[in-house]
Design a protein around this nucleic acid. Structure first.
Lengths: 208, 208
DNA sequence: TGCTCTTTGTGACTTTCATCACCTGATAAA
DNA sequence: TTTATCAGGTGATGAAAGTCACAAAGAGCA
């Protein structure tokens, strides 16, 4: 359901007129858990704002190997879509709905005019972009400077922050996100369990 | 020397009025090779446009270990400075002048008003940002999916593209950029020499 | 010419992590 | 209830790359 309240709640601090425009020009789309929102190489046709649910953004190589970058939740925007949209560029990332997700699609054409008229939009766009950039930099830090056990703990904390404790996920899926292998993740989880950092059950990780 | 021609040459396609503003409000600063333009955690006070020379952007961890991200040359902008500047954010990166470098510093205050008035500025900012984002994503790919020999070859090609053939650099410095060790780089270079990909001399790498 | 510093070469060893093979136990479907 | 499938456990092995120790070669300079 597209509603003024919903948008105001998730995207506070915008101008009155901008809320009106978002309502008029935006199109609300519901995406089911597991569906792909954006594929690598796909031409971006609209700006995507998340109004509910959880989306995972990841990179994939030519063999289909994946690498998790960051999540987007309600109140955030696919900044790639905003910036690529300007020149009808293609997506560099894959986006997958982790839960049922509601998105507000805004046509590209709005972007440029809003940029001029609404300072809050301009700030929103640049802030989103900066935040995403920082997340990717944190990812670079992780793979460049840190080891698997460390990265795994960080990953679990971030996921639990978003999805709740316990985290319902298989070792295989964690391995895919971290570009590791199931065996390695299982072994590391067991070590962390021995250190009393967490408790592992089938399909569930309880962080202490 | 700050000159209209210089700016027009490196930043083509902007509006007349914007060139005037850049001249009036910009401050030309010369930075010597080896000097640091931006330190991690430093508050960003102005937008930085490169009008000459070569700058290296890198990430560093708490132990001072470095990791090369990308270079900026004339005609490019420190996109971090543009986006961080909006909210007086701190720098996430280190920037080092590799050669003598000329930069045009523009006060933050100009940013918001130009964004409204000059569509070309808005496009320039978003395009810069997207390009930098893509470079960082390429870096993520490299460390996530590829091995050292591959990354080294890629690194050498990119550096030679910018700095010319032969590349004058020590193995130690390459190792620092790639977060590897000198011995590993030396050995890989030797292997590449055997494969006739390049020729190694003291402080110089000739790519075939 | 000799001395020193920087850069590079090299063997031996270690660590981290991926891979393989195979097993156990839980869950669900037939 | 039996069987198939999926999640997870575990030892053995190997490859990539980091570390250590030390040698050698070039460059600069006194």
């Amino acid at each position: 359901m597209i509603s003024r309240e919903n948008i105001e709640k998730h995207f506070p601090g915008l101008e009155e007129g901008l809320y009106e425009e978002l309502l008029q020009q935006g199109e609300m789309v519901h995406v089911k858990a597991g569906e792909t929102l954006l594929r690598f190489g796909e031409t971006i046709r609209s700006i995507i704002l998340i109004t509910g649910g959880l989306v995972k953004l990841y990179r994939a190589d030519e063999h289909g190997t994946e690498f998790f970058l960051y999540n987007l939740e309600a109140g955030q925007a696919c900044s790639l879509s905003m910036v690529c949209a300007v020149q009808h560029e293609r997506s560099e990332l894959m986006a997958l709905a982790l839960t049922d997700t509601d998105i507000l699609k805004v046509p590209l054409s709005s972007m440029e005019s809003w940029m001029k008229v609404y300072p809050s939009w301009y700030r929103f766009v640049l802030t989103s972009y900066r935040e995403r950039f920082e997340e990717v930099l944190r990812t670079v830090d992780a793979i460049a400077f840190r080891q698997m056990d460390d990265r795994l703990e960080d990953y679990l904390r971030r996921q639990i922050e978003l999805l709740g404790n316990p985290l319902r996920i298989t070792h295989q899926d964690i391995a895919r996100d971290l570009n590791s292998s199931r065996e390695v993740i299982s072994r590391l989880l067991k070590k962390m369990e021995e250190k009393d950092i967490l408790h592992v059950e089938r399909q569930a990780i309880y962080l202490h």
